[in-house]
C-alpha cells in the first residue's frame, strides 16, 4: 500500500513539474496556431469583400453590413474581434446572433452552425429570392440549397460554392473567390 501511494505521488509529481514547466515557455506574440473558427471568421470577412450586394439589400443608405450567426455560436469572441473596425463599401460591419431563420432577412450574411442541419430547408425557404448570403458549417449545406459551405481538408479550411443559388438571390460573387472554391452542382 505504501509502495502504491508512493508510485502515485511520484507520477503526479512528475506530471505537475512537467505541466508547470510548459507554462513558463514564453509565447511569441501573434504567432499562435489559429483555430478552425479564427480562419472561418476571416473567410466571412472575405465573403463580404468578394460578393456584391444590391443596394436593395439594405434598409437605408447608412445601414450597417450585418453578419449573423443563426443558432448556437461556435465562434466565441473571434468573429467580433475579426470584424472590429472593418467597413464594407462605407458601411460598418456588425455581428448579430439570431435564433430564427425569419430574423435573417435583415442580415447580409447568415452563418448556420452544425446544430441547425435539420432546419436547413426552413432557412433556405425564409431567404428565397432575398439578397442574403447563406453560409453553412456542414459540407452538405450547399447541396441542400445553401450558397457556401465550409469543409475541412486535412486541417485546412476550404469552401464549397453553389453559384446557381447565389445568382438566384441577386448576389454576385467575384471570380477571384469562385476560382478558389469547389463548385457544387447547381439545382435543376
Amino acid at each position: 500500500m505504501v509502495t502504491s501511494s508512493r508510485r502515485l505521488v511520484a507520477g503526479l509529481l512528475a506530471a505537475l513539474v512537467w505541466s508547470a514547466a510548459l507554462r513558463t515557455v514564453p509565447t511569441a506574440a501573434g504567432t499562435r496556431t489559429p483555430t478552425e473558427y479564427d480562419v472561418k471568421a476571416v473567410y466571412l470577412l472575405n465573403f463580404a469583400r468578394f460578393v456584391e450586394w444590391p443596394d436593395a439589400g439594405f434598409a437605408t443608405a447608412t445601414a450597417p453590413f450585418a453578419i449573423c450567426v443563426l443558432g448556437s455560436d461556435p465562434f466565441g469572441s473571434t468573429l467580433d474581434e475579426t470584424l472590429a473596425g472593418e467597413t464594407i463599401a462605407g458601411r460598418n460591419l456588425v455581428t448579430r446572433r439570431i435564433a430564427h431563420p425569419t430574423d435573417a432577412t435583415t442580415c447580409q450574411i447568415v452563418f448556420t452552425g452544425a446544430s441547425e442541419t435539420t432546419r436547413l430547408p426552413a432557412i433556405v425557404d425564409a431567404l428565397a429570392g432575398r439578397p442574403v448570403l447563406t453560409v453553412g458549417d456542414e459540407t452538405a449545406f450547399t447541396q441542400r440549397g445553401g450558397m457556401i459551405s465550409f469543409r475541412l481538408e486535412q486541417s485546412t479550411v476550404r469552401i464549397d460554392v453553389n453559384p446557381e443559388a447565389i445568382r438566384r438571390s441577386g448576389l454576385s460573387m467575384s471570380s477571384q473567390l469562385l476560382r478558389l472554391a469547389r463548385i457544387v452542382s447547381a439545382q435543376p
Partner: peptide, 29 residues
Amino acid sequence: GVAEETGSRPLKALSVDELMQVEVTSVGK
C-alpha cells in the same frame, strides 16, 4: 518558432488562397 509557419501577419491580411493553406485546430467546435 513552432507557430511561425503561419507567418507573423494577422490572418485578416492573408489573401483567400493563403487562407486556404492555414492549418487549424478544431478545439472550439
